[in-house]
């Protein structure tokens, strides 16, 4: 497995998209933190405010993660990959792990970078990491990004096309999850159990929901696991 992890690490970092995705995600999150801190008025700046760009970072990370697998199909290097290592499940798990670790690192750097930036600009006592909620809002971001990356790799493996995978991955959390709550009667219940909505309760304790923050993260991870298993099963059966 270490061999496969090393292989996937080489593959990921010898293309350009992870690099600019990382830069873009960090620029967006930290940039927004600075923007918010500079323009803040009315009430003290809080830890939550510093994480304004978290959603942008997450979207960029999911795009990066999806591209890590769809470009393999796009350039048919997936065939070279499966030729080198015919155990497809092992290869894809290694890829998922490498991408998730990168996503986690981006998440942590983005979150702490944003927090420090905001603090430097306008640091009051509300900017200290005190409660569990504060810590989850900042240090928890890496976990969310990592699980989000797993979902993206799974969706990318299932769809195999960059355009399709990215559309689904962006339209789903940004549009579908928000709009369903407008459906009369059932909308609110469905909305509560939408994966990205659920995980927002992990990083933002002010969002009300049916389950607690850690349970919400576990639920998000459960969704990712189900998608990943489906993707692995499909990739194993499908002609490469």
């Amino acid at each position: 497995m270490t061999t496969l992890l090393a292989t996937e690490r080489i593959k990921l970092f010898t293309t350009r998209s992870p690099w600019w995705s990382t830069l873009l995600a960090l620029g967006m999150t930290i940039g927004f933190a600075a923007l918010v801190a500079l323009n803040h008025s009315g009430g003290p700046l809080t830890v939550r405010h510093s994480q304004f760009g978290a959603q942008f970072g997450l979207m960029i990370v999911t795009v990066m993660a999806a591209l890590a697998i769809t470009t393999e199909y796009r350039f048919a290097t997936i065939r070279a990959t499966f030729q080198a290592v015919p155990h497809r499940t092992a290869v894809l798990l290694a890829k998922t792990a490498v991408v998730a670790v990168l996503a986690a690192v981006i998440g942590e750097v983005a979150a702490f970078g944003s927090w420090i930036t905001a603090r430097v600009i306008d640091g009051g006592p509300e900017m200290n990491l005190v409660t569990g909620g504060d810590w989850r809002a900042v240090a928890g971001l890496g976990l969310v990004y990592a699980v989000g990356a797993v979902i993206a790799v799974a969706v990318g493996t299932l769809i195999r096309q960059s355009a399709g995978a990215i559309s689904v991955l962006l339209i789903w959390p940004l549009l579908v999850e928000n709009l369903v709550q407008l459906i009369p009667r059932v909308g609110e219940d469905i909305h509560n159990w939408m994966p990205f909505t659920a995980v927002s309760r992990f990083t933002d304790s002010t969002v009300p929901g049916p389950i607690g923050p850690w349970a919400s993260l576990a639920y998000f991870a459960g969704v990712a696991a189900v998608l990943l298993v489906a993707a692995l099963a499909v990739a194993e059966k499908r002609d490469a």
């Binding site: 010898t14 350009r16 290097t77 070279a80 030729q83």
Partner: peptide, 12 residues
């Protein structure tokens, strides 16, 4: 095996 010489990521 060499099945298709273009099975390479162009940016690698």
């Amino acid at each position: 095996a060499l099945l298709d010489a273009k099975w390479v990521h162009p940016n690698r």
